[in-house]
Computed example of a mutant assay.
Amino acid sequence: MSIINMEINRLIDHTLLRPTAASQEIKALCEVALQYNFKAVCVPETYVVIAKSIVKDSAVEVCTVVGFPLGYSSTEAKRDQATLAVSQGATEIDMVINQGWMQEGLYSKIVDEIATVKEAVGTHCLKVIIETANLSDVQIRKAAQCVLSGGADFVKTSTGFAARGASIQDIEMLYQELGGKLGIKASGGIKTHEQALALIKAGATRLGTSNGPALLAP
């Protein structure tokens, strides 16, 4: 594996969140993550235990999603879901914000919800999905500030279930707004090595993809 591949592989959350995903596919995902020493596998909560059992003796983290993919679960439901996931072995949580609150400008509620889930996650990594496809540029910047104020560790662009995934413009904007104060996870539609490099250059510090091996150089 080349130096650039060694750098990229540790930025990749190798992901399978398709609603029809079965346990054998999750196991295969984890085996690929082990093979390439990816940073994490990102799986549905029902598969956290399986994923943990496979990667437990490695450097691969187990990530799962909360309030996914729409974000309008109650704060209490998100908190409880995160608490359960951590107890089952998840070390990273990707939470979707309440997108309706974002449209209404209820920023303090968004901040409080993020803080509540972060308290449940504790020292583990919390990434907050803001779904940039559904936001204006002004809203993307405001959402980034909410994530920062809520005490999360990363802002994440997309669920992969919206009209589009991460764009270079999204990442550049988030980087300009946050100035390195938070990690930035680009996700959704990342399929090639060239895309990965461009997103990293723009400021992404993590890449969510179902195409992990394809992001590495030939």
Rank of each mutant, 00 (worst) to 15 (best):
Q195M: 13
A162D: 11
I190M: 05
L135V: 11
D153T: 13
Y107K: 05
K201P: 00
G189L: 08
Q169P: 02
T116Y: 07
Q139K: 09
E172G: 00
N211D: 14
T132N: 05
K127E: 13
T205S: 15
G105E: 06
G183H: 11
K109C: 01
E119M: 13
D170A: 07
T123C: 04
G183R: 04
I168M: 12
Q195N: 05
V117R: 06
Y175D: 12
K118I: 12
G179P: 07
L148E: 13
S149T: 05
N134G: 01
F154M: 09
S149A: 11
T116N: 08
C125P: 01
G179Y: 06
H193K: 07
T123N: 08
S210G: 12
G151V: 11
T205E: 13
L148H: 15
V121M: 05
L199I: 02
A162G: 05
G183N: 14
K127W: 11
E194F: 04
V147W: 11
G122W: 10
T132W: 06
G203Y: 02
T157M: 08
A186D: 09
H193G: 02
T159W: 05
Q169F: 07
G100Y: 02
A163Y: 08
I140W: 06
D170W: 14
V128R: 03
G160W: 12
R164L: 14
G212A: 09
I110F: 01
F161Y: 13
K201I: 06
K191L: 12
G122M: 06
G203R: 04
K109Y: 02
Q139M: 11
I171Q: 00
A198I: 08
K191T: 14
S158D: 13
K191H: 15
A186G: 15
V155P: 00
A115C: 02
V155H: 07
A144S: 11
H124L: 07
Y107S: 06
K109N: 03
T205P: 14
R164M: 14
V121P: 00
D137I: 10
W101Y: 02
I110P: 01
E172Y: 01
V138Y: 04
N134R: 06
